[in-house]
C-alpha cells in the first residue's frame, strides 16, 4: 500500500536518514524506533506529504503521493504532536468538525466514539477546560469514526493513562486486522505481541555522511 523509495531527509544541512526503503502492506503495523532527534517525526511528516523530501519518493497504491494528494488524503489519518483540537470549541463540536472535513464511516456515531475514549459527560465542555490527556482523547476519538486505511500516528500514547493506552492498543490491532495499515512512533513499550508488528530503527548515519 505504502512504499518509500530511496528517501533521504535533510534538516539544517544535517542528514537525518539516507536512502531509506520500506514497504507497508495492508494489515501491517510499523513501529518507528530511534533516539530523540533521529528523524522519526520528520519521516512521518514526509509520509503525510506535509514536508517534502531531499530526495526520494513516496508511493501510495503505486502512485506518487505529491501528485494525487486528494485521493491519498481520503485514505490518510494523521495525528501529530499538535492534536488539531480547537480550544474554543466543545468536545462534540471538535469531533463534528473532523467528521465533516475528513472521510468517515457513513454511520459513524459520535457519542459512541466519545464513549470509547471515555469522554462521556464532557460533550458540551469547551476543549480548553479539559486536561492534556482529555484533549488528546478527543483527537483519538477520530479513530472510531474514520474509514481511512492508513493511520500515521506520532506519539499517540502521550499523556494517556494506563487504561486508555490499553484501549488504544486494542483499537490499533483491530484496525490492522480489518486490513488497515499503521505507522507509529512511541517510546512506550507496546504490549502488542512482537509477531503482530514490524520495527524500523532509525539511527544516525556514519560520521562522514552526516552533512551534505
Amino acid at each position: 500500500m505504502l512504499e518509500c523509495r530511496n528517501l533521504t531527509c535533510v534538516r539544517e544541512q544535517r542528514v537525518l536518514f539516507k536512502q531509506l526503503n520500506f514497504m507497508l502492506s495492508a494489515g501491517e503495523i510499523l513501529h518507528l524506533e530511534g533516539p530523540n532527534g533521529a528523524g522519526k517525526t520528520s519521516l512521518l511528516r514526509l509520509l503525510t506529504g506535509l514536508s517534502s523530501a531531499y530526495s526520494g519518493d513516496i508511493y501510495w497504491q503505486q502512485e506518487n503521493i505529491i501528485k494525487q494528494r486528494e485521493s491519498y488524503y481520503k485514505a490518510l489519518l494523521y495525528l501529530g504532536h499538535k492534536s488539531g483540537i480547537k480550544p474554543e470549541l466543545t468536545v462534540l463540536e471538535n469531533l463534528q468538525s473532523f467528521q465533516r472535513l475528513y472521510s468517515t464511516q457513513a454511520d459513524a456515531d459520535l457519542f459512541e466514539a466519545l464513549l470509547m475514549v471515555g469522554l462521556v459527560g464532557y460533550e458540551y465542555v469547551p476543549a480548553a477546560q479539559l486536561s492534556a490527556g482529555q484533549q488528546r482523547r478527543i483527537a483519538l476519538a477520530r479513530m472510531y469514526i474514520t474509514d481511512c486505511k492508513l493511520w500515521i500516528l506520532d506519539e499517540p500514547f502521550t499523556s494517556l493513562d494506563k487504561h486508555a493506552v490499553q484501549v488504544l492498543e486494542k483499537r490499533l490491532i483491530k484496525h490492522a486486522e480489518q486490513g488497515g495499515a499503521i505507522v507509529l512512533t512511541t517510546h512506550h513499550e507496546l504490549s502488542i505481541p512482537e509477531s503482530a508488528y514490524k520495527k524500523l530503527r532509525l539511527s544516525a548515519p556514519a560520521e562522514e555522511e552526516q552533512y551534505v
Binding site: 503525510t48 506529504g49 506535509l50 486528494e70 485521493s71 488524503y73 481520503k74 490518510l76 494523521y78 501529530g80 504532536h81 499538535k82 492534536s83 488539531g84 483540537i85 480547537k86 480550544p87 472535513l101 475528513y102 472521510s103
Partner: peptide
C-alpha cells in the same frame, strides 16, 4: 498553526484552496 488544525486542514481530502 499553533493548535495543529492548520496541519490537519492541509491533510483534508478537500482541495486546500477551497478550504
Amino acid at each position: 498553526f499553533i493548535d495543529g488544525s492548520l496541519e490537519q486542514m492541509m491533510l483534508s481530502p478537500y482541495p486546500l484552496a477551497w478550504l
